[in-house]
Design a protein around this nucleic acid. Structure first.
Lengths: 131, 131
DNA sequence: TTATTTGTATTATATATTATAATACAAATA
DNA sequence: TATTTGTATTATAATATATAATACAAATAA
């Protein structure tokens, strides 16, 4: 698991870590069912405190991206579908992003094409195990 | 200018204010060239400290969404186009949002339709002054 | 002119967030 | 039994956030 942290960033380390793992799952670098390193291992690899890793893991657990049990550690999981609460949050977030974008001169077409490109990029890593 | 702040939110007040103004511009509730309230006025309206408003204004000024001079106060402005730096930031942000979305069961089509809908919603408020 | 208002800056203070450190514990594993 | 796991607690330090009280030059309004 290759995760790079920017300690000069204003984004908290535990958020950076959470985001990196979510994108890694999205990209297929981490497959469904795959085990994550232990909290202490990951903390050592990244050179950060175990409690910081724990915080990121606790969030992802709550969000449904991973499951944790004491026997098998953390494991990538598909979140439950039909999440209205999430969809509302997504619409709010997109309203902000799209407002910024259109003011910055990124029009509808360019924006949608960019999104399509990202979906295509992510889909490449999501093919079954046969590669 | 109707802006509601959530003091229980974990999003800092100055970020909430900045986001609200950006969306208001995006929605056309604030038109290009329109004057914003003074920092002290807005602070009083919202029941927050003037320095907090100042921080939000300073950020938007830096981002190019508003211009400020001592004579006319703050004024909505169209940012300069051709911003490669912004476009890179946008792609990164969208990669995270789309990773989350697809893991939460929001597929390409639903996502793009949602974006299209938001663009359409924003465009309604962007017609010239003739209404 | 004078008085007021503007954005901006500074200093101080209080609180919250972030990150680390040092432990501790029950559950599970080897 | 000894070790490792996730989890929890406490303490500490640094940073971020928000408010408060001023101050100042530039511009405006009287």
């Amino acid at each position: 698991m290759i995760i790079t942290l920017d300690f000069k960033s204003e984004t908290p380390v535990y958020v950076q870590l959470r985001n990196a793992v979510v994108v890694a799952i999205g990209r297929g670098d981490l497959k469904d069912g795959e085990k994550l390193p232990t909290i202490r291992q990951l903390a050592q690899e990244l050179g950060i405190n175990a409690m910081t890793v724990n915080k990121a893991f606790a969030i992802m657990k709550k969000e449904g991206f991973i499951t944790i049990d004491r026997r098998h550690g953390a494991m990538v999981t598909k979140p439950e579908g039909g999440n209205t609460e999430y969809r509302e949050k997504l619409e709010q977030e997109l309203t902000l992003v799209i407002s910024e974008a259109s003011l910055k001169g990124v029009g509808r077409k360019e924006f949608l094409d960019t999104c399509s490109g990202i979906f295509a990029m992510l889909a490449e890593g999501q093919r079954p195990v046969a590669e």
